[in-house]
Design a protein around this nucleic acid. Sequence first.
DNA 1: CGTTTACGTAGACTG
DNA 2: TACGTAAACG
Length: 718
Amino acid sequence: MTPDPPPTSGSPGSPALSGLNEGQAFAVGLLGGPILVIAGAGTGKTRTLVHRVAFLLEQGLAPSQILLLTFTRKAAAEMLSRARQMHANAAAVEGGTFHSLCHRLLRQMGRRLDLPPNFTVIDRADSEHIIKAVVEELKLKDKGDKQFPKPRALADIISRSRNLELGLPETVEALAPQYEDYIPQVMGIAKGFVAAKRRQALVDYDDLLFMGEELLRDHPEVRRELARRWRHLLVDEYQDTNAVQARLVMLLAGEHKNVMVVGDDAQSIYAFRGARLQNILEFPHKFPGTRLVKLERNYRSCQPILDLTNAIIAQARERYDKHLYTEQGGGPLPRLLRPRDERGQSREVLKGVQDLLAAGVAPERVAVLFRAGNDSSDLEVELTAEGLAHVKVGGLRFLEASHIKDALSHLRVVANPQDYMSWQRILMLLPGLGPKKAQQIIAAMVRATAPPGYVVALKNLPLVAQVPELGELALLLEAISDPTLSPLSATEAVLEYYEPLCRALYEDHPRRLRELEELPSLARNYDSLAEFMAEVVLEPPASRAEEQGAGRLTLSTIHSAKGLEWDHVFVIWAAEGRLPAGPTLHDPTALEEERRLLYVACTRARQSLTLLAPREHYSRGQGLTQVRLCRFLEDLDPGLLEVPRMGPVFDVAPPAQAPASRGSQRQERPYAVGGQVRHATFGLGKVMGYKGDSKILVHFGRFGLKVLLLEFAKLEAL
DNA sequence: CGTTTACGTAGACTG
DNA sequence: TACGTAAACG
């Protein structure tokens, strides 16, 4: 292992080796064997990968012999287009995500696993639909059982169990103990889910990886062929890979061991879906002879931002030791603002952005980051009211919208007639057809013929005489079943058919119809329907607004901001319950990930960083509550953050870190801690304590721990 | 009988 | 919010 690499002796005049610092050049210029690059935020990780691609091409490798695996397909495309400026062949390098790689392999060779080549890739929402159907089919749920896990929770448990590679009972106990009593049912549902997917030739995200692994693991000839094909493997964002992805790297590179993985343990933010920090730590053991390169010189942020981010991550529990430094001195101290409420927060951001724009900063150099998709809702309203153009990244996806799914389902049943879930969906769109009748129609079709003949069978059903819309559906499907028809024409035909249905179905059809208009331009890029359907699910396309990012301020979830950077960054809701998010507050491991999330957010900033946390918040459920500053920003060296006085902040709010139990409160505490109380809705409960001046913590037998506002709670002491 | 509609309540994220 | 349940409707 080489912590501080010596200067490289690469061939002079090589474009791939010029313009790099010593560590970068060392990593880029290694000729073969396993390489682990630990690259802190802003240290030129992408640059290193880009130059590495160019270097390998300079060494005479064909572009088809290089495989670049990244976190999104967009990232791969951007890296390859940058590499192309150094080497013309770079555009032909194969790149993509683990999921897209496995998808391609399974389309070509899935037969070996009994997977038909026209299988359909399903997303999370599809999985939930199937799970719901399985629960109904197996009659596992007693009527009126309100505790029974919802399809969403079930899908979550099943997927997590697979990604963590932990048994279902253990997963439930560890991650969803409230469902402990339902473990047998959950296991039955998981089994039914597998069967339903197989029956319909459906493959979910997790299946892609595990089946890809199976293909490579159990078929040595496939493994050998791929090892011959890709002589060099480059993997970005290695800290966010899970166990099966690490094994895929092993299977792909096991023979030649020409593999470079790049990652930053401090930026691991996907543990919630099975990412393992250990993959980085274990890499040198899996690949003996690994050369380790650490990149610690930061080229992105100015010193005060770096000081703050170093301090935030310094408190993390386990990490590769590294300390980022920069030679860009100066720059303003990061600011921490505590506006009174969410509205005040939005106003502060607005004001900050307007000041920047007035100073000549281009809007696309500014971003507002937040933990969860709807943390920005109030800000969006304010921005729109002020006429400030912005794009929002992350949160609800284009493809998850029901009208998009409706339209695509018509294409899906043509691509894969066994996709009964999509059949059900398109049948239920017709007036008078509910779940029961749709089921009957599907059953009749299945009885009448084998999968390729379903459309004809549908046309000949007696029911068509009573429901003319069914006949129209059959006509549409017949038309788009024509294999010579392009995906574009098929999509246009579907939209023409679907438009009146959409109008009838949704109040807000103008917006939905506008979004549907984006489908044809997507379809145009594909040669076959199956390909179109799969790609669109694997890498949901950026919405049109997103592509028009130029000239607009960016609003983004922190997860979606990974790998990106802006001159000026605002982080809103840096507050307990938001960042860190509520559900993580009692889970130390999850909290560590929240810390890294704050770290990722702050390290996106080049020149200025503003953190905001309202002091109070009004929500319907809880009324007016005090908001505590994000714990990772407390107890920092006061020299790291500028905290401007804002209104009567310090006169009214108690110091944020003062625990509620301490101090000289003299407010009323009408209910004794430990005593019994009764609540109109929640019933009997036990007083656990008080939170601040205004709230009481009560544990209710049936509803768990509640935080109630004393003013409104109407509790009765017993 | 199955579909539609109205209502109340649990649960909320990140890809 | 959005989902699941219960009652009304065709």
